[in-house]
Design a protein around this nucleic acid. Sequence first.
DNA 1: TGGCAAAGGCTTTTT
DNA 2: GCCTTTGCCA
Length: 793
Amino acid sequence: MAVMDAILKDLTESQIDAVTHLDGPLLMLAGPGSGKTRVVTHRIAYMISQGIAPSQIAALTFTNKAADEMRLRVEKLVPGQSVWMGTFHRFCAQLLRRYAPMVGLAENYSIYDTSDSKQAMKRAIEVADVSTSHTSPEQIASTISRAKNRLVTPEMMLASSKRSGPTMASKVYPQYQQQLLTANAVDFDDLLLHIALLLRDNPELRAQLDARFRYILVDEYQDTNLAQYAIVRALSIDHPNLSVTGDPDQSIYGWRGADLNNILDFEKDYPSVKTVRLEQNYRSTPNILRVADQLIQHNRRRKQKELYTHNDEGDPVVLRIYHNGYEEADAIADEISNAMAVEGFRPRDFAILYRMNALSRSLEHAMRRRGLPYQIINGLEFYQRKEIKDLLAYLHLINNPRHDVALQRILNTPTRGIGAKTIQRLRGYADRHNVPMLDAARQVDQIEGLAKRSATCVTRFVELFDRLSLKATASIEDLLRYVVEETKYEAFLLKSHVDEQDSSAVANVDELITAGVEFDRYHPDDGSLELFLEQTALVADTDAFEDENDRITVMTLHAAKGLEFPRVFVIGVEDGLLPHSRSRDTDAGMEEERRLLFVGITRAKERLQLSCCKSRTFRGDSRPAVPSPFFNEMPLDEIRRVESEVQQNWFDDDPYGNSYPDSWDLPEEDSEANQDSEPNQDSGSAVHEKPDSLFDETCQLTEQDREQEIAKRKKKTRAPLASLQTAAEMLASGSAPPLTVYREGTQVRHGEYGEGTIVSVTGRGPKRTAMIRFDDGERNFRLAFANLEVIGG
DNA sequence: TGGCAAAGGCTTTTT
DNA sequence: GCCTTTGCCA
């Protein structure tokens, strides 16, 4: 049979083993580049070819992108079949649409994004009346989020905190849930939580859905949390045809509640499981694979596996040491541009990966200056833009008039005379009566202490809203255009960006409308406002990735999971960055960081470069950087180490005025540059005894380097690095603005407040701040801005 | 009330 | 360095 041939052709024995497994639990342990997606898609095709109804199959992925990819490939094998494929969150969102009333919601419920839920959280904290002096809303939010991922309800949290006294989170959690319920909204975690609890508490519904989704496939199983575990478990009792794929070594979402035990204990949960191991790697060269393998051997919580490949040896992995982040970015951009010109690589062949989004900036500069086409996949993108959030807030409120966060956002946007005070009054009224704020706005006359004028403005807003609501069933495009027009939104944008060259805001509005047009075209029949909003809420940053675009890809290591590129650069492989300083303290944290680097390394097919810098600009000023301890866990003898030469004109060529800080700092802060890199004494007991840590000479500034740098800086007119010169020298050379020494006891005169005495000086660089005592009290000034005159001391 | 400028604070990763 | 909050003035 032809279809069958196509499905099983070119598969290895163990792959066929997995593909042809139909009934009963299946665990696929698949190393990087082992053709996992291929096996999963072929398996779906095989199932269908064996007569299993596509409607009984659900494939759950981690990102929409992975789902799209899967859909595309299944479509090729068995055209026209409709298997449900999508993310866990989308899966739950759609179930919840249907069963919303069972958890106290209406089916037009809204999905709060992170910033929405932060707003709700603040309000909950206010209502719960707890002091946040020792925590932040974010901290409480993350505690509650973790609780939800572990299926802990407000009642459970309260009960468990009975003994030690209620915690901040246990007091806020019920309030927060009340906020969401009143607003007919859920947050990301609730999507999973509601469904998990629904399945647990309603045996009939559970059985019904178990039968409906008879075959469930879960991708990236190593990244599932308890809530997700409970959901798939509940759907696989009568029909335990659950197949999961994953790689414990690629679990990188522990911070989000992912529980490695889900995959490590799968065989215990389902004793009759068939386990298939896919260990052959079809992606990378042996050189790359050995580095990855030796690194990950240092993790203890894992399942041992043998990675091997029949690919050609290829080039050695390169470890590159740069002076600073700007050089790193420039050199990589040059290298890419060279490889394209000389070796015929395409932009899409390259990926640059890093631990934090903040590291993308210098890369962006470097590539833009060379005219290299690139795509940055990062947070704070399109849907986070103010103008987009504003317009979507209108749509959200039209779809769900109880959406309080949206209401508060647009009540005075564009400005229409409704101030913070008025909004606060409305909120207070709403909280007291336990009603949505829009209802409060409709009853504005009954709110005491509100100025007549404010009340009129509110009423006018309600009228506007009612007018907009009449268009609720129009196409998304029409609705958006109508909103923009009725609110005079563009005029508002133009007015608020008068002197800026920021025309991008208006362009973004157009782009949103375009997105609406596309949605309308894609959903001629089933398109609804609700669905549009759901889609925009559940898009991830990684989904913006388009591989048909011929561009260099720039993104975080997290976002890179599941992708592959011929040439990969991992930048910023430095202690404190990778591993990140906030993960360094625990073994679990370190292991996850190690896995993260493992994921980065194994994205590369042909060539891999890891790089670190001697100094890195961070939060405004540059600090010495130390290579990642992970380098000591790699086969260094087969890695090619290249230290960039000191470029003669490097500092003069530097296009960014700030690669070295101007000298605001007082000489006493010298020491920082000198107390380099003690190669992490506290951590790494096992690998520690290598005294010849290869970085001794390379990654600390040698005396010679230092002298060269001093010489070069002296030539410049810009203020030199304070740590390398005394204030007197700077004055003598005329290279610095007259350096005023502000210290405790210095007498100063302020243009406005008169004479005073400096009590203390804190902070560094442009943020250096002095506390000055005047006759009428103490005030803080930033020395860089304050207009101070020294009169003595 | 609204607009602006300065101070404050903060950065891991994302559905 | 950048975004958010605050505090002051028209």
